[in-house]
Design a protein around this nucleic acid. Sequence first.
DNA 1: GTTGGCAACTAGCGCGCGCAAGTAACGGTT
DNA 2: AACCGTTACTTGCGCGCGCTAGTTGCCAAC
Lengths: 336, 336
Amino acid sequence: MAMVDSRTPTKRVTAADVARSLGLSRATVGFVLNNTPGQTISAQTRERVLAEATRLGYRPHTAARALASGRSRIVLVVLPDWPLDFSVRRNLEEASLALDEAGYSLITYTPHPTGQSRPLWEVLEPDVVLSFTGSFTDAQVASIRAAGVRAVLPAPDAPTVAPYPEEGPLLQVGHLHALGHRRIAYAGSADPRIADLVELRRSRAGEAAARLGLHLAPGHDLRPGADAADAVAGWRAAGVTAVAAYNDDIAATLVGTATRMGLLVPRDLSVVGHDDAPIASIVEPRLSTVRLDTAGLGRYLARLALTAAEGREPPQRPTATAPLLVQRASTAAPGA
Amino acid sequence: MAMVDSRTPTKRVTAADVARSLGLSRATVGFVLNNTPGQTISAQTRERVLAEATRLGYRPHTAARALASGRSRIVLVVLPDWPLDFSVRRNLEEASLALDEAGYSLITYTPHPTGQSRPLWEVLEPDVVLSFTGSFTDAQVASIRAAGVRAVLPAPDAPTVAPYPEEGPLLQVGHLHALGHRRIAYAGSADPRIADLVELRRSRAGEAAARLGLHLAPGHDLRPGADAADAVAGWRAAGVTAVAAYNDDIAATLVGTATRMGLLVPRDLSVVGHDDAPIASIVEPRLSTVRLDTAGLGRYLARLALTAAEGREPPQRPTATAPLLVQRASTAAPGA
DNA sequence: GTTGGCAACTAGCGCGCGCAAGTAACGGTT
DNA sequence: AACCGTTACTTGCGCGCGCTAGTTGCCAAC
C-alpha cells in the first residue's frame, strides 16, 4: 500500500523502476506494457510486470512516449464559434469514449476569432485534426500542415462527410401530422451563427410536409429565453395548431411563452422539440422531441479519426441508427 | 522560400538544424531561443540565430521540451457539465490570450458524466489544473495529484483562493427571507459526482439561515428531470413556503413538478435557482436565480494559473466576481 | 609576466520511452 | 557434430530539448 504524500510529490515511477524492481530489463517491461507485436514474452513474466507496474503505480509519461514514437495519440476536434447543441456535445463525449478505448484522447478546441494566440495544433502536435463543422479555411489547413499534423479531416480534396443526415424534422412533421394537425409551422433559431443548419432543418421540414400534402405555415426565428408572444399570436391567428422547433431550447421557449399567454400546451398548441436535451424532461409539460443516435454518430466520428490516424481507409457511411421520436406531454391531437 | 509539400511531410526542423546551419553549437541556439538567464550571447549571434530559426521554420517540439524541462506549459481548465454562455466563453478566451503571452496554453476539458474515459490531466500532464466552477471532488483532486500535477486550483487546503467563494446560497436564503419566507428548505442534486459541492452550498445556505435566526427545513436531493412530487408534498406538509435549489436545473425540475401537482409557483412555493443558466429564462415562470459575475474572471483565472504554475503568491481576489441575485418570476412573498 | 575575471561560447548528459539489433539457451533436424 | 529455428529475453540507440559544467580567448590589474 503506497501512501502518497500530497505535499512532497513522490518522484514519478518510470518503466525503469518497474524493471529494476523485478530484475528485468527495461525493454522487456516496455514490450509487456505495449503488447509489442513480434515479441515473445513468457506468460509468467508478463504477469509479474503487469502486477509490479500497478503495484508501483506506474503511469507512462505521455511526452516521452510522444517524443520516442513520434505520435501523440491526440485527436484535436476544432469546434465552431457558436454554442453547441446538447446532442452535439453528447456526440463528442461518445467519440471521446470510443477514442479512449483505442488509446487516443480527444481534445476540443475553439479557435479565437482574433487569432491572436498560438493555435492548439501547434502546441499539442496531434495526430489528427478534425473539423466538427466539416470545413477548414485554406489558411487553417496550411497552418495545421505546417505544424506537422499528418491527418487533417475533412481532407481538402475529399468530399465533406456529413455526420448528420438531418432526418429529425421529418419525424417532427410526421408526428404532428399523425396526430391530426394540418396547419403546422416551423420555429427556427435566430442565432445567425447557425443560420445554415436552421435553414437546412427548416427545408427538410418543408419537404416532409409537402410529401404529406401540406405546406408549412410561415415560420419564425426565435431567441431562446426571449418572449415569443408575437410569433405565437401570429400562429394562432393563422390557425396553426402545432409547431416543430429547431431544438428543445426553442421548443421550451415556445411552451413557456404560450403558458404565459394563458394558452394550454398541448391543447391550444402542440410543440415538438429536437435533440432530447435535459431541458425536454425538466419543463412542464415535458417536451415531445426527437432523440438522435448520438452514440452511433459519436462512434462514427471516432472511427473516422482513428482510421485517419493510422492511415487506413475511412469508414463507410455512419452506422448510426435512425433518429427516434420521443412522445411526451407537449404534443396531442388538436384541441385535445 | 521553403515550399512545403503537403503529401510527403518534410522532416521537422530541430534546434540542431538551426545550429548546424550556422556553425554554432546546439546549446547556443537553445540559450537564444529560450532567453536563458545567466547566459551572455552577443547581439550579433542572437540575431543570426533568430533569423535562421524563422528562415528554416523552426518550431520547438512540445513533447521534447516537456520531457526535458518537466513542465508542459499547459493549463487545464475543467469546465462544468452545463453549457457555457457566451460571456463565459469570452472570458475563457481572454484567459487563453493572457496565458498564451506567457507561453502557456489553455485547454478546456469537460469530464464525462460517466467518468469512463481517462481524464485529460493524466494524458496532458498539465502544470496546472483549474476548476472553473471553483471546486473539485476529493476523488478528482486525488486523481489529479496522482497524475503528477503540481498545482491544483482551488487547492483543497487553501479555499480562500477559490475563484468562486460560494456566496450564492447566502444570496438565495437572504432573498427568500427578505420576501417574508420563514420556512425554507434546500434542494440539492442527487448526482454523486458533485456531492461535495452540493454539501458545501447546502451548508452555506444553513449558515445564512442561522445568521437570520432560522434553520433550514429538512432538504432533499433531487435528480434533474425526475418527478419530485414526494419532496414537494413533504415540504408542503411541513409548512415550507420556499426552496433554494442547488442549480437552475434542480429549480426548474421543482417548478415543473409543482405545476404538475396543481400548485402555483410562486404563490404556493417560491423557488430560487443558481447559475443563471439558459434554462432559467426559458421555463415558465422564469427562475429567480443567482448570477455569478464572470466579468474579468478570465484574466483573473489566467493570473491565478500563472502564479500557481510558477509557484508564486496568488493574486488577490477581484471584487468584480461578487454574485448577483436576479429576481424573476419564481419567487414572491408567501401566498402572494 | 602572471593572474584573474569576464564574455562568448561548446561538450555532453539526462529526461522516459520505443524499438532495432543482439544474445543465450534449448530442442530438433540433417 | 554441425546447423537451424524458436523462445525469452538484454543492450543500447535515438527522439529533441534544457541546462550544468566546462573551455577558449581576450583584456585589465597587480
